[in-house]
Design a protein around this nucleic acid. Structure first.
Lengths: 193, 193
DNA sequence: ACCACAAGCGGATAAGCCATCCGATTGTGC
DNA sequence: GCACAATCGGATGGCTTATCCGCTTGTGGT
């Protein structure tokens, strides 16, 4: 699967498309390939050649952010405090989802749905699992929490922030609040019953 | 706003439309008014006359379930244990969202977006607030949790269950697990730091 | 420097969905 | 039984999405 070197102009157009998509995503406009093509000054066919679906394009847009996330995760594994490492990773994850509109959809899509980023997502998933396993081994997290729950829960928080409808400036705060609630529990007195 | 008595045939058609929509929702088909009309053996115009948008129709479909939820909420207010009452209400809420596909979208939509159910949703929201306030007064919930967070968090859980992609039979279990995680906190040792 | 070939480009165009409008129909009050 | 008004229903136009294929452009060989 060695990607053919890609011709020079093709590469330039690729960049241009992703850049335009990046802008659209940032300003909250839904990605419409036809629209992207017009704004990039390219033919529709060109865009469809590069990205068969809006999701594929979104994936390309999200990739840098996901890579940063993965890097942070690997770095967190160096932390000796298993819980703190996990918490830091999860915090970064929800921050990314809430800050960058391209991340959430890509994260929510099942792993096999998006072939291109599969390796990247799998790497992310692995570090997440490692962080969780370590924390569980240290007895720091509830035992019924599986690795497969991590992504859904983080996506759930991001979604909750959306539903809450915070102003853009407050989104991160809300996300932090919700993550704190999830991590610490809504209940104030944990062992009352 | 006294709803005009509605003619006999119109009422019958209304029922038929909602019934068809109910089926479609249950089998996971996205609501398309044109499609609903065909299946109900009615003209497209008739359907659009009754429900201007798919959301409006979905709202009608969800109404009975929401009413049941509201009833349960009011009943929960009778429970002397404030925390247990809240927990019971939240449990019922996520169960409804996960069981009935019509509930989640209606719940997630901002209150003012759907004029018809506004009163119903507002009633629901009020009982939720009452339950939460009581629990907070009893010191049973974390103080930084506002009433406005209740709906988003429940929607977040429902969404998380979707992302998790459980088999239909396991959806409720997953929802319970996630709600428990949220209520109790992911962290095993709450007061370690 | 030139040529030939393949890879890439791009817009015209087909397919499908959504929503509206208005002539025909049917129920209801007198 | 009649007239009016409310309701019905499908034909229709606008819009979004995606494909196809003739034309253009970069690249590697001579």
């Amino acid at each position: 699967m060695t990607t053919t070197p890609l011709r020079k102009d093709a590469a330039r157009n690729w960049e241009r498309i992703v850049a335009v998509a990046r802008e659209l995503v940032d300003q909250g406009t839904p990605l419409q390939l036809n629209d992207v093509a017009r704004r990039a000054g390219l033919g529709v066919g060109t865009v469809y050649r590069h990205f068969a679906t809006p999701e594929a394009l979104l994936e390309a847009v999200a990739t840098p952010c996901l890579e940063a996330l993965a890097a942070h995760g690997r770095q967190a594994l160096a932390d000796t405090d298993a819980w703190r490492a996990l918490e830091s990773f999860l915090t970064r994850t929800v921050e990314a989802q809430v800050t960058d509109a391209s991340v959430a959809p890509v994260a929510a899509a099942s792993v096999d749905a998006l072939p291109r980023t599969t390796e990247l997502k799998e790497s992310l998933w692995c570090t997440g699992t490692a962080l969780l396993d370590r924390a569980r081994a240290a007895g720091a997290v509830r035992p019924d929490l599986a690795a497969a729950d991590l992504v859904p829960l983080m996506c759930g928080i991001a979604y909750a922030v959306d539903v809450h409808g915070s102003a853009p400036a407050d989104r991160i705060d809300t996300a932090h609040r919700y993550l704190a609630a999830l991590l610490g529990g809504l209940r104030a007195t944990p062992t009352t019953v």
